[in-house]
Design a protein around this nucleic acid. Structure first.
Length: 155
DNA sequence: GCCAACGTTGGC
DNA sequence: GCCAACGTTGGC
């Protein structure tokens, strides 16, 4: 019986956390904390173990999809929301009903070269990608199976 | 419920 | 550093 895997894209500024950081992390795994956008949070709540993730470097030179990760732990409360010293502290979040979740992701592989935003924009088949929509800022977003396959074919 | 003000994201 | 696009907040 085959389970339908879903596909996602997650953004990170490489100066804060890059795909190399993920590769070098213990068990090549990290928790994805700090998401403070409801739409992005809801997408994380939709994620299942084994879902595949495009790892995107934002605010980078050049901005690019740089590799693949996968979900190894489904959504659970992000502890930084309760940490007064953390930049992502949210005084309005109650411990009894945490507002913000995170997931754990594990490194799968890095692409042979970055697939730059510029390059992706030139791909007709990717026209509708959330990433490429004007003004799109979502840090966690869905990727369709066709978009996924096409992107992998570019590597 | 409207909307102005503000803060953030992220490409350039 | 600039700024367009977007999300959130809060006064009314």
């Amino acid at each position: 019986m085959t389970q339908t895997r879903k596909y996602w894209l997650m953004k990170s500024e490489p100066s804060a956390f890059s795909i190399d950081d993920l590769m070098n992390a213990p068990a090549r795994t990290t928790c994805w904390d700090g998401v403070r956008n409801y739409q992005a949070r809801n997408f994380m709540r939709d994620m299942a173990i084994g879902d595949q993730v495009l790892f995107y470097h934002s605010n980078a030179d050049p901005p690019a999809v740089v590799g693949i990760a996968e979900i190894v732990k489904t959504a659970y409360p992000d502890p930084t929301q309760f940490d007064k010293k953390d930049t992502h502290y949210d005084p309005q979040s109650e411990r009894s009903s945490p507002r913000w979740d995170m997931v754990d992701i594990r490194h799968v592989r890095r692409f042979s070269r970055p697939l730059t935003l510029d390059q992706l924009r030139r791909e007709t088949k990717l026209k509708k990608m959330v990433l490429l929509r004007k003004g799109s800022r979502l840090s966690v977003q869905p990727v369709s199976p066709k978009e996924w396959e096409h992107i992998l074919s570019l590597d």
